[in-house]
Design a protein around this nucleic acid. Sequence first.
DNA 1: GTCTATATTTTGATAGAC
DNA 2: GTCTATCAAAATATAGAC
Lengths: 182, 182
Amino acid sequence: MAKREEILTTALDVIARNGYRRTSVKELADAVELSQAGLLHYFSSKEELFQEVLRKRDEVDTATYGLDVERSIDSFFEVIRHNSEVPGLVQLYAQLSTEAADAAHPAHEFFVRRYDTFRATFGGMLREEQAAGRLDPEIDVERTANLFLAAADGLQTQWMLDPTIDMAEHISYLWQLITRQD
Amino acid sequence: MAKREEILTTALDVIARNGYRRTSVKELADAVELSQAGLLHYFSSKEELFQEVLRKRDEVDTATYGLDVERSIDSFFEVIRHNSEVPGLVQLYAQLSTEAADAAHPAHEFFVRRYDTFRATFGGMLREEQAAGRLDPEIDVERTANLFLAAADGLQTQWMLDPTIDMAEHISYLWQLITRQD
DNA sequence: GTCTATATTTTGATAGAC
DNA sequence: GTCTATCAAAATATAGAC
């Protein structure tokens, strides 16, 4: 299983640099010095491979930035700041999450669950902020959480098309807008 | 040229129902009763065809909902409400806009320009709201416009994965959050 | 577990007749 | 302008040897 992990770690790196559109199974195989068939020995399909890459990424990010209810909303900003260092992963994520819209797509369930999890986590963070008196207790946490996640996703699209857009700054401005004069 | 328009109009319809992932040039050709080669006579490539479909859609939407500075921000909400009637188009848009992140993608320029236009239009709407006293004049119009567009895009992703998410309601809640106690 | 080699298969692009 | 026919190409998936 060590090899599988090595593949995923290396794939994160390669994709972060080269993006998704240009990355074939063959290229990832080269990067870990396996043949294409050798790599696919560890994954049942290309789709599964890429889904696992994203799962691995979440794993790493969660470990690094502590994306859970314990941490304040700042960790959310940090992740976004970090994302602008890994354009290819942002691209992979954006691409796969829209492809997976189709219920028949193998990664569909993965993304549905992922959004559920993130909604819950971010909602929890917002409640912490409310409890700490930094966020109006009247605010609808669910809707607001969805809106923050949506804004983060949508900013990625804008940033990919025009890298001068500062995602973290925008999200932080959204936070300002929502918390001002509370 | 009438045929070309007919193709685009029909394509809008087919894609709205079937989505992008499953729609090949051949299927669109069938829908207008042309052979695949016959259809490609009107477009230099598949990518150009789909880009033109999106351009056509903007054209129709603009005509229908009057997406310009004249109209108030309500027209923005209306478009979003309308979008939930055409899932396939939402999917096409989401998919193509992320694919076009790559500067080498043929639709790259199209999307860059599109976002510029929408930023300007929506920014104009926000300024109207400020002038009408419905929006805090202190608010940074550019950032806020970007955030609204981002939220709208991101909500599409969430809605595609889970159609119970109400995009228009969320955006309208965002507007509420930003205009409350002004 | 890893490789070579090949099957698959899909679909976009093009040539050339009518 | 439209068709038939064919090409091209890419990549993924798989079979089977080592």
